[in-house]
Design a protein around this nucleic acid. Structure first.
Lengths: 335, 335
DNA sequence: TACCAGTGTGTAAGCGCTTACATTGCTTTT
DNA sequence: AAAAGCAATGTAAGCGCTTACACACTGGTA
């Protein structure tokens, strides 16, 4: 097994010191052209690539940003993350991604792993986590930016889940809906979902609705889960005229099952989503949903994190506007 | 600014040597319980986290696997990658992801970056790339596993794009289709797309079809792109009775536009997809498509890469079976 | 009692880089 | 012609870990 070439190998072969080779690679303007050409051609011949660990150890920075997201399968995060990584790449940063499967313990583990790997900064989803995690990040001096949420007490970049869902619900209530069901992602491990549900409750309360018997079905992400949840909602005593879903995927599943059950949407029943992913426009009829600017958020997150890592940051959280996108799944109740 | 604690800080505070602290962390059974407890409690107090770069440098392995995928936004890769990373995580490996936006130069850059970061192995999508890239990987002694493709000359794990598409096309031809159009991802930068199109051509040839005037529209990933491509296909002289799409997303876009144009699918026109993502089942009517076992592939890829990195690998490429999933978008031509 | 194996720790030599500082050999300047 | 400045390069001290090896102690065993 051949050893992979090191800086020293290059230096020896080019007849210079390791310092000069290092300079050729990192600040070429400090080396006279002749030397530089010679060194670089040796680099090419040997197929030399710098050892990142050694470089990071010596230079004390990694040009790496870590992100822990709940899942990669979710189109929401994928799109934002893609934008995030593109922007990072432009600035010469790499992205380390880990996913937690919505499990706080796994998330903490991943955060520690990313910090250990020398991430210059971290992107985290949502705001709710064990205070020790935040303490740990402070001790380690690793800045963390929260996304998909908006908080004033920590650096964050996202939107107001509560207010957005409240606005959508109010709109629906104005149409006269009284019997309402909710399908949401599991609340225990998902603060965005909780914020959205609290937005629904706030709207109900403001409209003077009885608040107790709000049927809520919690289920994992997935179209078929949305469909199953819809069934459960319909077998409850009260058959709703409006089903508010915590995200578009669940809504798409609910919509499909409604149609399979012979219900006409929105004539017999209204259904709303949240997120505004492409899927919302693809189903028939198109979903009425809350549109979230994912790309913008991802790009802004990258810029913010880079700024933080360079010590140039104002410390302001950013709240992006969301907007209700009207499809054809929301209408006044028929009875 | 407080310095983050090092092994030595812990050692000093616990009154032991750095070697002992290191042992407590990496092979606890070698340290007597009393010492270990003392050390670990100091670790906790100080919020110590090992410096990964230093560890990697000293131990000469990173427990990190890199992956370069064309895009994160694509549900196909997302699902496989999620499975990949889950399996890696179980084995104590981390995943470094980079995306290339389907650009070979960017891909090469990303590969170099991942290698420099000490990836113990790489997951790459597809097989076609500059020979120098493979040479570089060999020089660096970094094993690479190709996925979403099946090749016998290099370690790979995937499926036969050509054969799968050929099978689907043959099936369609048996129904009597004569006028056929194709919508595909850009061929230049995507060997899977090329393989699929060559599968179509092979089927046409085998069935004795004239091969030259096969209208092919190349377009980027995206539902609206699929729709636009469908329009272009229909404005061509020959209006097809069958539109074969290179992936489900393009197919979904084509389907939607067909319906918007007042065409009944599959009565007036048949449309097929490829990939078998959830989307295929969500549209109405459901897509007839080729189903690819993404999770299985992702998991197998993880296991293979771990095996390779531990020197325990048989060297066999793996070809997973695909299967035609019949929805309701394929039927005999009406005229 | 002297010897040994076994166990728990310490010592110290790297791992492959970066970078502050020292050195060399020119040009300029005075 | 000597002093000074400057540009290009070399020297070597780490960065924070892992781990081979050395060492000290224990409790058998001969």
């Amino acid at each position: 097994m051949t050893m992979t070439p090191t800086l020293e190998d290059v230096a020896k072969r080019a007849g210079v010191s390791t310092a000069t080779v290092s300079r050729c690679l990192n600040s070429p303007e400090k080396v006279v052209e002749e030397t530089r050409d010679r060194v670089l051609s040796v680099v090419r011949d040997l197929g030399y690539a710098p050892n990142f660990s050694a470089r990071a150890l010596a230079a004390r920075k990694t040009q790496t940003i870590g992100a822990v997201i709940p899942t990669m399968e979710n189109a929401i995060f994928a799109q934002g993350l893609q934008a995030f990584q593109e922007r990072l790449g432009q600035a010469g940063f790499m992205l380390l991604v880990a996913s937690s499967s919505y499990d706080p313990d796994i998330e903490e583990e991943q955060i520690r792993a990313l910090v250990a790997r020398g991430a210059d900064g971290l992107l985290l989803i949502g705001h709710h986590r064990d205070p020790n995690v935040y303490k740990f990040l402070e001790t380690q001096n690793v800045p963390a930016l929260l996304a998909w949420t908006y908080q004033t007490d920590r650096p964050s970049i996202g939107f107001d889940n509560h207010a957005a869902m409240q606005a959508l619900t109010e709109r629906a209530l104005q149409l006269g809906h009284k019997r309402i069901g909710v399908i949401t992602a599991p609340l225990a491990s998902n603060d965005r979902a909780r914020d959205r549900v609290s937005g629904i409750r706030a709207a109900l309360k403001a409209a003077g609705h009885p608040e107790n018997p709000l049927p809520i079905i919690e289920t994992d992400y997935g179209i078929s889960n949305g469909a199953a949840a819809f069934d459960r909602l319909m077998t409850a005593d009260l058959s709703p005229t409006l089903v508010i879903c915590g995200n578009d995927v669940l809504a798409a599943g609910a919509l499909r099952r409604a149609q399979e059950r012979g219900l006409s949407v929105p004539n017999d029943i209204s259904i709303t989503g949240f997120d505004g992913i492409e899927l919302a426009n693809l189903v028939t009829p198109r979903l009425t949903t809350v549109h979230v600017p994912h790309r913008t958020m991802g790009e802004a997150a990258a810029e913010t994190l880079i700024a933080i890592s360079q010590g140039a940051w104002t410390g302001e959280s950013l709240c992006l506007p969301t907007e209700i996108r009207f499809g054809e799944t929301l209408a006044p109740p028929s009875n």
